[in-house]
């Protein structure tokens, strides 16, 4: 597989949300607006990129039996870095995402890529895989957040274009499942075409 395919597979073909169904907890939880989805997606992208790089660099030093705890410590460190940095320099975004940032640690996507890809591939492929998968995740979250924001609040990225409240259910949790379901149908259709 060449590097371009390695990068682009995260968007449609192996999209973490729509195809691999990884990391659904933050996906359903934070996507009440497009901006929140994007913020969460980019935070996860950073963690995924850094953890893939580090895991691919240290993979041969880590004995097999303790690889999972080692990976988790590496991932948790990067998540804490993101959390502290966001709290310091992007306090308004942190207020929105606060609770979900620590949960990136247990996002199956990050550990999944570390275990399934970075621990078997070289530095460059792992970095590209992390970046592609992360951006694919960000893309999925922004898309889902955008759909929920348009139907639920009548706005996109905070710009209101419909007066009034919109369909409340899209902002609440059930709306996340409904919107995600229809988006998956759409993506599956695209993949077949």
């Amino acid at each position: 597989m060449n590097q371009l395919q390695n990068f682009s597979k995260g968007f449609i073909k192996e999209n973490p949300v729509f195809t691999l169904f990884l990391g659904l907890c933050p996906t359903l939880g934070v996507t009440t607006s497009a901006f929140n989805g994007l913020g969460m997606g980019l935070a996860t992208t950073f963690v995924l990129l850094m953890s893939n790089i580090v895991v691919s660099l240290v993979k041969s030093f880590i004995p097999d039996k303790v690889r999972i705890p080692s990976f988790i410590v590496i991932i948790a460190s990067f998540v804490t870095i993101v959390e502290l940095t966001m709290q310091a320099y992007l306090p308004s975004l942190f207020d929105q995402l606060g609770l979900f940032i620590p949960l990136i640690v247990v996002n199956c996507l990050v550990l999944g890529r570390a275990e399934a890809f970075a621990s078997k591939n070289n530095f460059l492929s792992s970095a590209i895989d992390g970046l592609g998968m992360g951006l694919g995740f960000a893309f999925a979250l922004t898309l889902l957040g955008g759909v929920r924001e348009v139907f639920g609040s009548g706005s996109i990225f905070g710009f209101k274009f419909i007066e009034g409240d919109g369909m409340l259910i899209f902002v609440l949790a059930p709306g996340a499942f409904i919107a995600l379901g229809y988006l998956i149908v759409l993506i599956k259709k695209l993949q077949k075409a």
């Binding site: 041969s60 030093f61 880590i62 004995p63 097999d64 039996k65 303790v66």
Partner: peptide, 11 residues
């Protein structure tokens, strides 16, 4: 590079 063995001391 050879993989480190899963001996107690290594872990």
């Amino acid at each position: 590079m050879a993989k480190t063995k899963s001996s107690l001391i290594n872990m």
